[in-house]
């Protein structure tokens, strides 16, 4: 594979990556057995766009170094970064990046909710869980991605929301991560977002 040539992700790869991040942020990978991680790695190694990107390759390289010992601190680190109970080190909420107090449930949360409403969607426990948690934003993007007709809405949502804050989120992961896996996913997200940006720019929307 020629690493210097940046490939645009195909729809299939994009869907796969968004799904992967959705599972990741939902916490589904926390209990993934070691053998399954091996399989996941194999799949990642075959994602052409990801492999054409420096951060993507860095992420895959990290994961290749994974051992059973690296799996153990993964959950604790994941919680330190995104769940708590401590001060969150890499907030997964859009609005927390947009105000001095770093609070959740702010104006951005409602804007995101409005997008969901427009598509007839609503988060469960609305008002209790902020709509702009990265997990919901990813799920929503997947929903938009599934239909060619929603392309405009997708780009609008990406530009107005996820792409606005996800770099800061990744930077905090890089700064605070203490586990090989959370760091790898931080790199991978950063790389993937770069691809998404270049794709959108390329499409001139």
């Amino acid at each position: 594979m020629n690493h210097s040539e940046i490939k645009h992700s195909c729809l299939e790869e994009r869907m796969f990556m968004y799904q992967l991040f959705l599972h990741y942020y939902r916490g589904d990978l926390l209990k993934l057995p070691a053998a399954e991680w091996g399989k996941l790695l194999e799949i990642l190694e075959c994602q052409p766009a990801l492999q054409s990107n420096d951060w993507g390759r860095k992420a895959v390289l990290q994961l290749q170094n994974m051992t059973t010992q690296t799996l153990e601190p993964f959950e604790y680190d994941f919680n330190r970064l995104f769940v708590g109970p401590n001060k969150l080190l890499a907030s997964p909420f859009e609005s927390s990046y947009q105000n001095f107090e770093g609070t959740v449930m702010q104006a951005e949360t409602l804007k995101v909710r409005n997008f969901y409403y427009y598509e007839g969607l609503q988060v469960a426990n609305e008002g209790g869980l902020p709509d702009d948690h990265i997990q919901f934003e990813l799920e929503f993007i997947l929903h938009l991605l599934s239909s060619e007709k929603k392309k405009e809405a997708l780009h609008l949502f990406l530009e107005k929301h996820l792409l606005k804050w996800v770099d800061q989120h990744c930077a905090r992961i890089e700064e605070h991560s203490q586990s090989l896996i959370t760091l790898a996913f931080g790199y991978m997200l950063k790389g993937f977002i770069l691809l998404e940006k270049s794709l959108i720019e390329g499409e001139g929307l």
Partner: peptide, 23 residues
């Protein structure tokens, strides 16, 4: 009320004081 660091879920720590929390 909307503090980012508010406790969100029941969490268990083992060993106590280690900072290793599980949801």
């Amino acid at each position: 009320v909307y503090h980012l660091d508010r406790l969100k879920y029941p969490m268990r720590q083992y060993p106590r004081g280690s900072g290793q929390w599980q949801r």
